[in-house]
Amino acid sequence: MKTLIIVIHPHMETSVINKRWIEELNKFPEKYTVHELYQAYPDEKIDIKKEQELIESYDKIIFQFPFYWFSSPPLLKKWFDEVLLYGWAYGSKSGFKVGEKKIALAISTGIDDEGFSASGKYKYTMKELTRPFELTFEYIKADYREPFIYFGLEQNPSLEWVERSVPMYLDFIDKL
């Protein structure tokens, strides 16, 4: 079955790595469906029913975004609040429509992985900083997997560094 990639990037026109990942994913429409939230909802008015039907249609879902103020861009939080509703995503016998679906994050960061450590610039690991996502997906009984995190774009802004990530990302998705 195809994998749904939900992309959350508020400034895709200036993106380097997320834009490149989308370009590569779009080469394989038989394997991946790319759904860009900021493109689909420029006014941020989310079609809840459409999003829920989309989620129900896939067994593997990736949320792809740049690490943004130690979390995700704001539209993803809004998406969680509006789409993962009681009675659909959790909380009743008819809920848990996301349950058992394989879900993971694909995150691009500017600094290297050492910056995200107890002794690093930001004092916390990515595991610690992404724990709210993990808890969210556990709460709705999804099969949450370890995230794909590509570090160091600010220190290595070269095309070579970006291209290095592409096969790694596709391999991650395919093994999900």
Rank of each mutant, 00 (worst) to 15 (best):
L76V: 11
A89L: 00
W69F: 10
Q64W: 04
F96E: 01
Y124L: 14
T130R: 02
I103V: 15
S117K: 03
F63L: 11
D59G: 00
F67M: 10
V83D: 02
Q52V: 05
I48H: 03
R131T: 02
K60A: 01
G91K: 06
D143Q: 12
F133Y: 06
Q155S: 11
S92M: 02
G110V: 09
P66H: 03
V98M: 15
D112N: 14
K45Y: 07
L153F: 09
I111C: 07
Y41V: 05
Y41H: 14
Y139A: 09
E134Q: 13
K97A: 10
K141H: 11
D81T: 13
G95M: 01
T136Q: 08
H35R: 15
E36Y: 10
E100H: 15
K60Y: 05
F70G: 10
D112C: 12
K77F: 08
I140L: 09
Y68N: 11
Q64F: 01
T130N: 14
P73I: 13
R131D: 08
D47T: 10
Y150E: 01
T109D: 04
S94P: 03
K141W: 09
D81H: 15
D113K: 11
L153A: 06
F67S: 05
I46C: 08
W88K: 00
P73Y: 14
I46G: 04
V83K: 02
Y90L: 02
Y41Q: 13
Y38V: 12
Y144L: 09
L76Y: 14
K45R: 12
Y124F: 14
T125G: 07
L153I: 10
F96C: 01
Q64T: 02
E146L: 13
S71L: 14
K141Q: 14
F137V: 08
Y58I: 06
Y41R: 13
I61N: 01
K102T: 07
E82F: 11
L75N: 07
K93P: 00
E82G: 08
D113A: 06
S57V: 11
Y144C: 10
E154K: 12
F67G: 02
A40G: 11
F96L: 07
A142S: 13
F148V: 03
Y122C: 09
K50V: 04
A106H: 01
I103M: 15
E36I: 09
F65L: 05
L76I: 15
S57E: 12
G152F: 04
H35A: 14
E114G: 00
E146M: 08
P157H: 06
Y86V: 04
F70A: 11
A142L: 07
E51V: 08
S108V: 13
G95H: 00
K97F: 06
A89Q: 00
E100C: 14
Q39W: 10
S94N: 15
Y139W: 11
L85Y: 03
E56G: 06
K101H: 04
N156G: 09
K49I: 02
L153Y: 07
Y58C: 03
M126D: 03
Y90H: 03
L153Q: 11
A89F: 01
S94E: 15
I61T: 01
V98H: 01
W69D: 06
E56A: 14
I140K: 00
K77A: 13
D59M: 02
S108H: 06
E36N: 15
F70D: 09
K50Y: 02
Y150K: 05
E53P: 05
H35W: 14
F65H: 12
Y122M: 12
E36D: 15
E114N: 06
